[in-house]
Nucleic acid binder design. Sequence first.
RNA 1: GCGCUCGUAGCUCAAUUGGACAGAGUGUCUGACUACGAAUCAGAAGGUUGCAGGUUCAAAUCCUGCCGAGCGUACCA
Length: 540
Amino acid sequence: MNRISDYIPAKEYLKAEIANVLSDLGVIEVIPKVEVPADPNYGDFSTNVAMVLARRLKKNPSDLAQDLVQKLLDKKLRFIKEINFVSPGFVNFYLNYQWLYEFIEYVYESGPENFAKVNIGNNSSVQIEFVSANPTGPLHVGNGWWAAYGDSLARLLSRCGYLVSKEYYVNDTGGQIRTLGESILASKKKIEPPENGYRGEYIDKLAQEYSGVDDIYETGKWAAEIILKDIKDTLLKMHVEFDSWYSQDHIERGGAVEDTLNELEQKGLIYKKDGATFLASEKLGDSRDRVLIKSNGDITYTCGDIAYHRDKFKVRGFDRVIDVFGADHHGQVASLKSAMTALDIDEANLEIQIGQMISLVGAKMSKRSGNFVKLDDFLDDVGVDAARLMSLMNSIDQATVLDIDLVKSTTMDNPVYYLQYAYARICSIQQNALKESLNIDDLANVELSLLTDPKEIALLKIISEFEDIVVDAANMRRPHKITTWARQLASGFHSFYHDCKVIDLKNPDLTMARLALVEVTKISLTVALDLLGVTLLEHM
RNA sequence: GCGCUCGUAGCUCAAUUGGACAGAGUGUCUGACUACGAAUCAGAAGGUUGCAGGUUCAAAUCCUGCCGAGCGUACCA
């Protein structure tokens, strides 16, 4: 076993062998589930397949499990030390450490370039649209929260073999732009802003700078452009870079709307009522029919949005589109999905990830009230890496409460330092090793079987789960799973570091084996933090 | 009212998507630096997973009903 291509993860190997035994029993088309038990006392791996199949085969799960155990033992599989049956029907596998030593070779040879790079996307294209905050004010913390999510998801899918494109939809036209212009002109004239208008320092500042004509739309357009530039800068500061900034104005005036309306018209899904033009979306799954063209001739936002999404699939040809919405936009989901159905686009290819709302302790986030915490300031206060990691610690399904003051005051306790410190320690060890001329020139000469300390084994097991975690996080669109794992890894490493001195001049063989383990830890940590977009430093 | 989402340690969040004893951080308490970086490690305490039923060998997870929270319910965007 010296070539990467020969390597089969232990879990996959077990899966295949279990499937073989099952087919001997006449059970086919079953992919047994093999997992790592939470409690190591239940073995290195376990399967619940006996319990799952018991009903179908009309057999007692424990009989089935014990039968399975015996048949698997008879095969004298490699790596296997012991196979157990545990009531009510778990089958647990205990492996000798050889599988971990081969795993080290695999990771070592893969390096950060190739380790945990599993192709599940097959070069299909996916567009991820996120942030897309209206250019009517600076980004606030809530916007930034999902910026990290979208960006990290893009990194994940990209590593997993998708061709990813990141997009920001710029709502640079319509009523809000007029309201923005109106608000600025009001500030210039020192009068009250309109109802639902924007206020705050940035409005006053823009008003001072504005020297153009007294036209609310012109003023609004002018201001939106400036604000958008600031938004771009803030996102760059957060290490979020978009591939494209797509203009709503372009969609609405560039023919996309006409094409969409024509197509819907041809399908007979459009009708007029009360002087307005409706899409018959209710019968396609929406809660009611939607207005596309108002009775005054203006098109609705919904209409533009449908044209925009049609453009993503039919004009630009993305295989899959992922929209990241805040929970306050969940009402659009049914409309968009039914509209895709109307346009013969498989709605399953339009995924909408809903992020639960972020609330601030002691503050509201509203651009209209002018009372919000700017993302830019937040990044300055807590640091980009801490901000990103913080947001990537929780699932977007979890409504999050953010106490800005608490976050600022506990910056030194932030988990990001825990991860970065682990990396800095690794680099430090490697530098010290180098000073003693201890470096691995050929892993084949390293006696990996010297790694038997419980902390060494525990660390290796954590690393061995990483590829599954990556695939899982990508498939479920949940990058926070990477964070959860990375924290486990760092914990495992710190604990190992404490118990096992790596550099021991009196024991060069063990030193080399441990250096290999350190390198493998470094590789996996590097990949994980790259997926999260968190930077690693050799010194802190 | 209706709809969507959510409810897990004091606080902030995890939990291999139906698995075994619900885990981390933080806070509180107790230990560990004349060994590679103590921004660390080891330990204690903290829970009837909002409540009540149901399905299942197995439920924080699925179903039903309550309770509570957020959001939505425009010819706004």
